[in-house]
Design a protein around this nucleic acid. Structure first.
Lengths: 133, 133
DNA sequence: TCCACTTGCGTTACATTATAACAGAATCTA
DNA sequence: TAGATTCTGTTATAATGTAACGCAAGTGGA
């Protein structure tokens, strides 16, 4: 069990946590170039995928982007709400909704492994700013 | 209102309907090359985006792919169930789940515009084949 | 310690997905 | 028909993602 990969994973995770928003893999790459001038895409993607497997990072499919998980150690999938105005991404845990979803699919015989629930719209902050304009 | 664009849209839609599964934009491009030897990506993307706006085609975000809508004229967003084994994609209407989702997000002040609900797993056909092996 | 073996990382190169921007054709207005 | 407008095709390139090779670091046997 080498630790080299884990070092890179912690660097990638710290970049994502520092920014707080969803970043593309290439945003992460650029942020790491100061520290690792010769870093290349596969290094970043490997670290991101390892972090996703561990649950420390989520992939935002509809943005092709990645975001640090805010609630450590949650097993349940959650709803991602994505503000198309300011770019903020929030995780909204909703276990009863996930159960409902599983129920709907169970009836069709579908065996669900991974849930992608992403809602685009306008967050409360941007919404009230628009209203005041 | 020219009709040239609409011709291309109907060609793209017929390709998607003929295949039945989710196709990448470049799969569509290749399929159309027989008829339009010099066709280029923006032509396909423009037709796909127009069809998405009209509701005749859905984008599958987690596959970067596109699929013809089977249920003409449905307004409601639906759950996409995606078999990672055979690649089939099904639309499962679930209005009460969408209402539940809206409710969860309304509480946070989020104004939802577009819903991406995609579930990866194994469809009933592939599941029973696996069981029999 | 030394060598063979395994594992996994960094790098190069390339594949896939998507769009910016311009040029030209079709349509509209008068 | 001239001029304005809009939409389309094309070129070029940007953005995202991965295959595959070779090296380096750890592992186990002698």
């Amino acid at each position: 069990m080498s630790t080299r990969g884990e070092i890179m994973q912690s660097r990638v995770l710290s970049v994502l946590k520092r920014e707080g928003t969803a970043l593309s893999a290439y945003d992460v790459l650029d942020a790491l170039r100061a520290e690792y001038p010769k870093i290349a895409p596969p290094t970043v993607y490997r670290a991101l995928n390892a972090l996703i497997d561990k649950g420390g990072v989520h992939r935002v499919e509809s943005l092709n982007a990645f975001i640090a998980c805010r609630e450590d150690g949650h097993d349940h999938a959650s709803i991602m709400s994505i503000c198309d105005d300011c770019g903020s991404v929030e995780e909204n845990p909703a276990p009863e909704l996930m159960a409902n979803l599983s129920g709907v699919l169970d009836k069709t015989g579908f065996d669900a492994h991974r849930h992608v629930i992403e809602v685009h719209g306008v967050c409360s902050t941007c919404g009230s700013e628009d209203a005041s304009s």
